[in-house]
């Protein structure tokens, strides 16, 4: 970690610890918007971490942004922080202005554009849009009349919205667009061609999952040292120790895979890394959530206890922007299409 990253880590950890309390998450689950948290993130310039300095941002790197998104996942911050970071990055890269306020991702293939130049309008439907209800704008990648992919910035004001939630009670709203004017658009950045919003969404979720897995580990270890049965902390039982070690190795693997993907994006050299990260995070989540709940016993099954803030997020996120099984099938198809001897060069190409 370089000096900037150390400062960034301190800043985000302090900010999230101050704001993301149990009460805040509960209020959010009941429908409230975490305005104070959001303002703090924006005021510190963190939502524009990847926006160039010329564009009014921090001009930092993807490995820096990864720290922030991971931390947000660790704390369960109930705001579209990762989404806004990525949306702002895409807009800035395409030379478009970055609006204030939360920006969400409109990911899906049921959108279409009409018109041309400055008078494009958007039609179609997107389901499960993260926090659309509290987002001022959305970003979409849609083919224009000529089939060229356009990065579009869309104002969500007045858009037809049906509220929905994932099982972590995070906003995942269904939107219908009919003739909604596009605020700004540009050719979708050729450096990232082939990479859809689904990829960027999967990267965000993989990083968040890395953070949430660290939280699960820390919480489970702390609980195992606290909870006494048979006259000693349950963490002294070898059965518990072995389980927690497995949790730790899974969290470590998911974290490495997510960081590696972020680094590949930073180097402009990304191919299969995002898929790898999502597959690994999904598998880690499956194993880690079941261990964490087992170690916590009945108390971890209550709404009162905070364990589920991480586990319900992991159960949601593992399936968003492509479940592990879907990304794995993509990877496997690629491997199986080539000669067996081509696998090793693929593994070692970077």
């Amino acid at each position: 970690m370089n000096e900037f990253q150390t400062i960034l880590t301190e800043t985000i950890q302090r900010l999230l610890s101050d704001h993301v309390s149990r009460d805040l998450i509960i209020a959010s689950e009941q429908g409230e918007w975490a305005q104070g948290l959001w303002d703090a993130l924006e005021e510190n310039g963190l939502t524009k971490v990847l926006v160039s300095e010329a564009g009014g941002g921090v001009g930092a790197q993807w490995s820096d942004a990864a720290l922030l998104i991971k931390a947000a996942g660790e704390h369960g911050a109930p705001v579209p922080f990762g989404e806004t970071i990525v949306a702002a990055w895409l807009l800035d890269q395409a030379g478009l202005p970055v609006p204030e306020g939360a920006i969400t991702l409109l990911e899906g293939n049921r959108l279409s554009l009409t018109g041309e130049g400055d008078s494009l309008t958007l039609d179609g439907q997107v389901d499960g849009v993260p926090w659309a209800r509290f987002s001022k704008h959305g970003v979409a990648v849609v083919p224009d009349a000529d089939g060229k992919m356009q990065l579009c910035c869309i104002s969500l004001e007045g858009v037809d919205l049906t509220p929905a939630m994932n099982i972590a009670r995070e906003g995942r709203d269904n939107l219908t667009f009919s003739g909604v004017p596009v605020v700004a658009s540009a050719d979708y950045n050729p450096a990232t061609v082939g990479f859809t919003l689904r990829h960027w969404g999967a990267l965000i979720r993989s990083l968040q999952m890395g953070g949430a897995l660290n939280r699960l580990l820390a919480q489970s270890v702390a609980y195992a040292n606290e909870r006494t049965q048979f006259g000693k902390p349950i963490g002294k039982f070898q059965a518990i120790q072995q389980q927690l070690s497995v949790l730790a190795t899974q969290a470590a693997a998911a974290g490495v895979a997510a960081n590696y993907a972020a680094q590949a994006v930073e180097k402009g050299n990304v191919s299969h890394e995002i898929a790898v990260a999502k597959v690994r995070a999904d598998e880690a989540a499956n194993i880690a959530t079941s261990i964490a709940h087992q170690v916590h016993g009945a108390i971890g099954f209550t709404y009162e206890h905070t364990l589920h803030f991480a586990t319900r997020r992991l159960w949601s996120w593992r399936a968003e922007y492509g479940a592990g099984c879907e990304w794995a099938a993509e990877l496997g198809t690629q491997v199986l299409q080539n000669k067996p001897e081509a696998l090793w060069p693929l593994v070692t190409q970077k």
Binding site: V276, A328, L336, V347
Partner: peptide
């Protein structure tokens, strides 16, 4: 195994092979 699956021309292995690939990439980085 990849050679065998290709010879058998048996569908349905993609996901598992992809999972192994993801593990391998991750383990190598670790």
């Amino acid at each position: 195994l990849i050679r065998e699956l290709q010879a058998q021309n048996k569908p349905g292995a993609e996901e598992e092979i992809g999972r192994l690939f993801a593990h391998m990439i991750t383990l190598r980085q670790m």
